[in-house]
Amino acid sequence: MFSFKGIALILVNLLFLSANSTSGLDEETTLGHILKPGLGQLVINFAGSIVSADGSGLPAGSGTVVEGKSVYGKHCAACNGIDGQLPGNQLAGGIGSLATGRPLKTVGSYWPYATTLFDYIARAMPYNQEKMLSADETYAVTAYVLRLNSILDDEARLDEKTLPQIKMPNQDGFIELIK
């Protein structure tokens, strides 16, 4: 039997109905609408870990090129090579090479946004020890990889405000097929 609460839930769900499915299956129900249980639990203050190009999602923190060199040496150099130069896995160099006969895609020559570098290191590096770096260490190693590409100088420090302001050399190198 329907409880009062159950009827209330169904009524609440009717308010959030979608009429834009293109599958054609919705229309086959006799009521004309599909009832949904509405079981999503309300959460407050969920920050998530997705960093966007405008800097939204960046955690508070900071790190320098000098600190980054040390983090890189400990956690990154084995796979990416000293100074990001391991052949086949290069992080640096190749700027201006994309339209030549020997294009080299690296962070410096290809990646459009520096925020993406932070996001990727924070979620996916170091390989097999993912998510071990602190926010400060992640800013630091981001700064160091940008230094390897001559995008920052030796004294640079990055934080959640300065990182999104960096203009990458290939930022305008993409044709976005969907806006």
């Binding site: 997705i50 960093v51 966007s52 190009a53 994309l98 339209a99 294009p103 895609k105 962070v107 290809y110 990646w111 459009p112 946004y113 925020t115 993406t116 570098l117 996001d119 990727y120 996916a124 190198g173 993409f174 044709i175």
Partner: peptide, 19 residues
Amino acid sequence: GYTRDETAKYTDLLENGKA
């Protein structure tokens, strides 16, 4: 999001250097 996999990786580089 301009995530790594939709910028650095799964983009299609053309001869003219644009992707």
